Simulated scan of single mutants.
Amino acid sequence: MLATFLIGLREGLEAALVVGILVAYLTRLDRRDVLPRLWVGVGLAIALALAIGAIFTFGAYALTFEAQELIGGLLSLLAVAMVTWMIFWMQRSARTMKRSLEGGIDRALATGGLWGIVVIGFVSVAREGVETTLLLWAMVQDFGDAPTALLGAVLGILAAVVLGWLLARGMVRLDLRVFFTWTGAFLVVVAAGVLAYAIHDLQEAGALPGPFGPMAPIDPATGAVAVGWAGFPFGWAFDLSAVIPPGSALAALLQATIGFMPVMSWLQVISWAVYVAVVGIFWARGIRRPSPTASSPASVPSQQGAS
């Protein structure tokens, strides 16, 4: 619940800030007449995210186990790619987000294309919605406890909506640069865990060599798949299930926060380590870059001040 709550909070707050900027700017321009079209776009984006989640959830029931694992692994890889892109997109674009959104509104109003407001609302929210759906679906498949994971996500999104409203009204202040920086670091680790589980799914489906396939090294003493260096590269890297039971609260906490599982293959461990090292280095470089003087998402306009 903690991991999905934080994901729902971060992604929901991104969407809430975008909507808050758009609503405040239209209010300042005294164009409240086009606000319903903006809300239509937001509603369509939410519906798209829910529809994608339903298709992934219920469409998998008609598939074989191998097909489910293959699709699950590929969708998890897609989720990792989208999250990685979003982390660096926020680093590059967050400081100019407000100006870009207001520019889009100006162009739509100037050309008379009022349905462009619908498109702006849809695109602005759909990006976070689809990304959140993919990431949460992958994590639910990973954790195996759908009700708790989804409850955490819903609570996070609700908290984001409330926080976004309070920010837009000027009733609370939050250093959004710090918030998105450190939640970005958290998402790097979460995405690494999703990547590791995607490798697990693909190994179970037979798309990648691993402990479940014919290339797995066998321990001659036990007849089981080898563990440790003897299992390199397609066996188990470690098996700590005797110390940390897979179904225990500690195992769930470690899996939700750092992507650790009591039993992991070598390909899982290597992919996790490489992802954290490479993406973490680029993330650290991004936060050390000097900040330009452009507007930041922390300067969300207050509707009270605007009107």
Rank of each mutant, 00 (worst) to 15 (best):
I120M: 03
V40M: 08
T132H: 09
W266K: 05
R285M: 10
G8P: 03
L75R: 01
G113W: 15
A108L: 10
F58W: 15
Q303Y: 10
M261Y: 12
M90S: 06
L163M: 10
T64P: 13
F65R: 01
Q203G: 04
W229M: 11
M215T: 00
G247M: 14
L63A: 13
G206E: 09
T257V: 15
F232Y: 15
I244H: 09
G72C: 09
I7A: 11
P211W: 01
V123Q: 09
V83Y: 12
P209C: 10
P262N: 07
W115E: 11
F180M: 02
V269W: 01
Q255D: 11
L63D: 12
V40A: 07
V123N: 09
A306M: 15
V189M: 12
D145M: 11
L174N: 02
P245R: 07
A298N: 11
W165D: 14
V80P: 06
I87R: 05
L77V: 12
F65S: 02
E69I: 03
A205W: 03
G112P: 11
L151R: 06
S307G: 10
A108E: 12
G259C: 05
M97Q: 07
F260D: 15
L44Y: 08
I21D: 00
A60H: 02
Q304L: 14
L50Q: 02
L136I: 10
M261P: 04
L250V: 15
D30R: 03
L101C: 09
L63S: 13
R28V: 02
Q203W: 05
S124E: 05
D106V: 14
I120E: 04
Q303T: 10
V34G: 03
V189D: 05
Q268N: 08
L17Y: 04
G210M: 04
F65D: 04
R37Q: 12
W115G: 12
R173S: 11
A237K: 00
A198Y: 12
G72L: 07
S291H: 01
I105C: 07
V227Y: 03
L13K: 01
P209D: 13
V83H: 11
F212V: 00
V194Y: 00
F58M: 14
L136G: 03
Q68K: 08
D142P: 01
A67F: 11
A284E: 06
Q203H: 04
V278Q: 08
A24N: 09
A252D: 15
L267K: 02
L253F: 11
A16M: 03
S302E: 07
A108T: 10
A237R: 00
A62C: 05
A242K: 11
G247A: 15
V300G: 03
P290G: 07
D219A: 00
L26Q: 06
A221L: 01
A126L: 08
F5Y: 13
Q91K: 06
T132G: 11
Q304N: 14
G129E: 00
R107T: 07
V279K: 02
A16R: 02
L158H: 04
D33F: 14
A67R: 12
V279E: 03
I120L: 07
L77C: 09
T27H: 13
Y275D: 01
G206A: 08
E128Q: 05
L253W: 13
A216Y: 12
